[in-house]
């Protein structure tokens, strides 16, 4: 089972992505909490890509999301042609600075790493590719 959607880099498109994922996973019978983890990881990743990877919104559908479920393993692949980033170099969120107001956020990447079983990022031919793997709860 798989699903694919392409969007242009604009925050307004995120709801469409989340609804699309939810509809598919519900029809596949994927457990609710696993589905919510995957929606969260996709949401955080695409939000970062749009916010940091592109200088301005565009109508070109340059962000592609592909999700495949084989047995109890879900693989999520996100490609974009925005600015190169280093997913693994992102520092852990600094709570003290968030509380003092010196820094805002920094939780997104940490969340993705925490709710997925495996995350890898590559940069090739002007494209970022982010691949997550999630082992879902077996349906009995």
């Amino acid at each position: 089972m798989n699903m694919k959607i392409k969007i242009s880099p604009a925050i307004k498109n995120l709801n469409e992505v989340k609804s699309f994922i939810e509809e598919n996973f519900k029809s596949w019978g994927t457990p609710y909490m696993d589905m919510m983890d995957i929606i969260l990881a996709v949401d955080e990743s695409i939000t970062n890509i749009i916010t940091h990877g592109y200088d301005e919104p565009s109508d070109k559908e340059s962000i592609e999301l592909f999700i495949e479920q084989k047995g109890n393993i879900v693989t999520i692949k996100i490609t974009d042609n925005g600015k190169k980033y280093d997913f693994h170099a992102t520092p852990a969120p600094d709570i003290r600075k968030n509380l003092s107001g010196d820094k805002r956020g920094g939780f997104g990447v940490h969340l993705v790493k925490s709710v997925m079983n495996h995350v890898e990022h590559t940069w090739n031919n002007g494209k970022n590719t982010l691949i997550f793997t999630k082992i879902i709860t077996p349906v009995t």
Binding site: K18, I39, E44, T47, R104, G105, F107, G108, L111
Partner: peptide, 8 residues
Amino acid sequence: YMSSSGFR
């Protein structure tokens, strides 16, 4: 549902 934006 809440993402890190909501947490902020």
